[in-house]
Amino acid sequence: MIKTERSFEGVYLALAIGALLIAPFILTESYTRHLLILALIYAVVASNWDLSLGYGGLFNFAHLAFFSIGVYGYGIMAKSIGISPWLAIPLAGLLSVAAAMIVAVPILRLGGIYIILVTFAFSQLVLQIVVSQSDITGGNMGMVGLPPLKLPGYNFVRDGKLGYYFGAVILLLSSTFFLRWLVNSPTGLSIVALRDNADYAVSRGISLAKQRVITLTASALFTGIAGGYYGAYIRVASPDAFGMGLLSLLLSILLVGGTSTIYGPILAAFLLTFISEAMVDLGPWRHMIVAVMIVAVLIFYPGGIWQAATGFNEFLKRRLGGRVARKTSAQST
């Protein structure tokens, strides 16, 4: 509807989907499949964080809490209450949306560092609730033995977790289509407009408070669903899901991938999950090397690896464009 520059988005998307469909038949080992599934889930969480942090420019540190609320929401609904896992996963998404509405209220008109403080306090609050309400959440021990996903006569964990893999692929695809649709819609543009210049945006009729609620709730939807799916796959809900380890992994996926791109964090989720895993024998060196890599990427490619990828795309366009131009000039002579 709103003109953007022509790109190869469709072509690259088709290639990426093709690769995701073929991958599990090449990477048949159970542990590799496990990493792929984790990467797919992290990709969903990081790319949705990109909506609030990248496009919205909101330093939202409650994003991981939205994910954890999804995990615990799934655990409580599917195990304690006994709702069907297929229903509990989308409901976990709605639970995170409700949480996003709650956190949106105090930060409606705040800016910068105050958003970090409030959202960080919110996630600590949720963590303390989880730890203290051990009758419901299992406290520090967490919840174990969450119900797995099953179709009649088929457990998703069979065939080397093939069911979970394709479930995660479908999750990532729906999340990505949702995000791309949103950021290209007038609502998405208004979110960027508020980031670029809030006063000017308001004087063009855009409501700061309303769009901020939309930004946070939209970014929580698939994050919560991914949390529910993670719970159904790992079958454990533990307070670790709030931890600094996962937070810094997701933040580095987002920054290395490149903010305000959606695709960047998705690419980085696969890259960082596998690079980090490839160095597992190095012990503590692994974290140091990853940290140095992140610093290096941010110095040389502040726009993340997506900036490098689009640079390649521009190069390709110039080459193709040049060839077309030569052809037409050859025909005209």
Partner: peptide
Amino acid sequence: ETAFDSLTAYQ
């Protein structure tokens, strides 16, 4: 002269 700098003129 104010604008939303990361958006196109059309947007």
